[in-house]
Simulated scan of single mutants.
Amino acid sequence: VCVYQSCQDLLDHDFKVHLVADATSSRSNDHKILGIQMMMNLGAKLTNVESTLFEIQHQASGETFKALLKLIK
């Protein structure tokens, strides 16, 4: 509910929302799936932790990238 309400508020204020699905949880898996569907229906884009980390990195080189790879693998 907290993530859903935050998502709704951000979208209402014209922010782009990227929901990191594998970093989201609920009391039951059914509730999680329904909540994700509801947020997508509002306009949130779905992503995952690995994609988000690579997006933040911007480039596939350097020491930071090498450290990131170690965390992901």
Rank of each mutant, 00 (worst) to 15 (best):
C2T: 13
C2V: 14
V3T: 14
V3N: 03
Y4P: 06
Y4L: 13
Q5C: 07
S6E: 11
S6A: 13
C7K: 00
C7R: 01
C7Y: 00
C7W: 01
D9V: 06
D9M: 08
D12V: 03
D12A: 13
H13P: 07
D14M: 03
D14G: 01
K16H: 02
K16E: 05
V17Y: 02
H18A: 14
L19F: 05
V20L: 06
V20K: 06
V20Y: 03
A21C: 07
D22W: 02
A23W: 02
T24L: 12
T24I: 11
T24D: 07
T24W: 04
S25P: 05
S25C: 15
S25A: 15
S25I: 05
S25M: 05
S26M: 08
S26W: 07
R27G: 15
R27V: 15
N29S: 08
N29F: 10
K32R: 15
I33Y: 03
L34S: 09
I36P: 03
I36S: 07
I36Y: 01
I36G: 02
I36R: 06
I36E: 03
I36L: 13
Q37P: 00
M40Q: 09
M40P: 01
N41D: 05
G43M: 09
G43K: 12
A44R: 00
A44N: 00
A44T: 00
A44H: 00
K45E: 12
N48K: 06
V49D: 00
E50F: 01
E50G: 03
T52P: 06
T52H: 06
T52R: 04
T52G: 05
F54S: 02
Q57E: 06
Q57G: 01
H58V: 04
H58R: 10
Q59G: 05
Q59K: 14
A60H: 12
A60I: 04
G62L: 03
G62R: 03
E63A: 09
E63T: 14
F65C: 04
A67M: 15
L68Y: 02
L69E: 09
L69Q: 15
K70F: 12
